[in-house]
């Protein structure tokens, strides 16, 4: 039994929110919000907007806010695109053309063990009113 896929064929255009519990393949164009476990964008495909998926494999064009656990990219990443994820792969090019063309983009991928952890949020209700909570207090105690 073949795996079920939601397919946006070449020549088709979807505008709005697309939520799917099965994988999505885009050979046409999607503009808006897309939520799915996997997203495969073919070379002829384009996705513009907010994408939240577990696995992204793009050979086409993407722009907007892209959030995926694992990302495999080629094709074109347009200006004003933010890509966040846990793992990214862009294969090296073999000729004169890059595998992936990046416009003005922001890429935030992986966890840097050398980066200091984000400060713990201040908890309320344990310290006195207007005073920092004990966990957030700094300096030596006597």
């Amino acid at each position: 039994m073949a795996e079920k896929l939601t397919t946006v064929e070449e020549g088709s255009e979807v505008t709005g929110t697309l939520k799917s519990t099965c994988g999505v393949t885009v050979s046409g164009k999607v503009s808006g919000e897309l939520h799915a476990p996997t997203l495969m964008i073919a070379a002829t495909g384009a996705v513009h907007g907010t994408v939240k998926v577990e696995k992204l494999h793009s050979q086409g064009e993407i722009s907007g806010r892209i959030d995926a656990d694992t990302i495999e990219l080629s094709g074109r990443i347009s200006d004003q695109t933010t890509i966040t994820g846990r793992s990214i792969e862009v294969k090296g090019s073999n000729g004169d053309q890059p595998t992936a063309i990046f416009g003005n983009c922001v890429i935030e991928v992986g966890v840097d063990p050398n980066e200091p952890p984000a400060p713990a949020p201040v908890k309320e209700g344990k310290g006195k009113k207007g005073q920092p909570a004990p966990e957030a207090a700094t300096g030596a105690t006597t």
Binding site: S87, S93, P98, C105, I107
Partner: peptide, 18 residues
């Protein structure tokens, strides 16, 4: 454009400008 190649496992905080 720059030819980028990223292997899985790498850590990136990148801003790319054309």
């Amino acid at each position: 454009h720059t030819h980028f190649a990223f292997e899985p496992g790498c850590v990136l905080r990148l801003k790319t400008e054309t």
